[in-house]
Design a protein around this nucleic acid. Sequence first.
DNA 1: TATTGTGAACCTGTTCACAGCA
DNA 2: TGCTGTGAACAGGTTCACAATA
Lengths: 203, 203
Amino acid sequence: MYLRALTGLADDGTTTCSSEELAAAAGVNSAKLRKDLSHLGSYGTRGVGYDVEYLRYQIAREIGVTQDWPVVIVGIGNLGHALANYSGFRSRGFRVVALLDADPRRHTEVVAGLEVRSFDDLESIVAEHDVSIGVIATPAVAAQDVADRMVASGVTSILNFAPTVLSVPDGVDVRKVDLSIELQILAYHEQRKAVAPGSEVVS
Amino acid sequence: MYLRALTGLADDGTTTCSSEELAAAAGVNSAKLRKDLSHLGSYGTRGVGYDVEYLRYQIAREIGVTQDWPVVIVGIGNLGHALANYSGFRSRGFRVVALLDADPRRHTEVVAGLEVRSFDDLESIVAEHDVSIGVIATPAVAAQDVADRMVASGVTSILNFAPTVLSVPDGVDVRKVDLSIELQILAYHEQRKAVAPGSEVVS
DNA sequence: TATTGTGAACCTGTTCACAGCA
DNA sequence: TGCTGTGAACAGGTTCACAATA
């Protein structure tokens, strides 16, 4: 978040900023921002603030986005398409090296400049490009199988868009994004908005 | 999460489950699950466990997914396409009532059975369908404008996929999904995996 | 007896408030 | 003087451990 906020400030031509300004741009409070940054080191100047470009580099280095991360995407349905074309990955140091799908009918397709390949090619692709991050965009039923194959072939981080809890061995990280849970949370609050203000008020 | 886990159990024909089983299916610890459920009421039976179907209904009612939520999606690029076609929305009580895009060239398209309409139609659509939830899948630069228009037309909950911090008035909820931040988090852990085990070891 | 529901302990991350420093 | 860096207070959520109970 801070990295993106700093990039935004840099694009606006800002060369220096206070914790207050950066916190506003990132949508957090300034004390939290200072504490967070303090874990990386003392990159600010008291009485002045932070140098945008310097801080940006320090954060990028710390979180590892100065290097290039090869990524495979499995499951080239609607979501897989969107992910393959998502420009935000490329611009943050992620390079999609292969798109895989179990359905042979998709293997003729070319998406985002890459041909969709057979899921059987997973092992060779992971080995060839030294891939450690995999993205699962398959239906829920296939997700655990895909995860197992990914882990077996050497992937150690998985971003899971399928609505299932994956079980993986220790040492493998999984992050889950569930689009409909986000909507459910909003719906929950909506429901409460409708009730709370006039709660118990007789019609 | 619990709702989805319960649906899974119900599909397997399970009619009753302990906190231990449900917690495993949802990927949390059983004490947390019991505490979470206790906030809704006492729907379990000591010595026995929970009735899957009964608990499922109680949770669904509590979070508001027993009702139908009309939703508009703005920005029908790759991600908008994927969201429009995402079956998880429909199955959880969300109904996409309109797809809007500022680019007139897209207005001929039909996506997921809906024609893509002009962004100018936002107000009338929100009014007609009584929409309270909007989804923003536009580029970052357009997101704040879209949010402002949504709020002005009566939307009170926004799911934002654009990589920007939106500012909205009190009473409006915003949730943000940033796909590349998820990958960055994985990359960060990957980087540490590579360093930590043999840290400080001389080559 | 098996399992829930929950007070208390614990832990983690946030905010406050101010000393330290350019 | 203005802003960072940080100890201390605080808040919220998680886990433990056990009394309550079907």
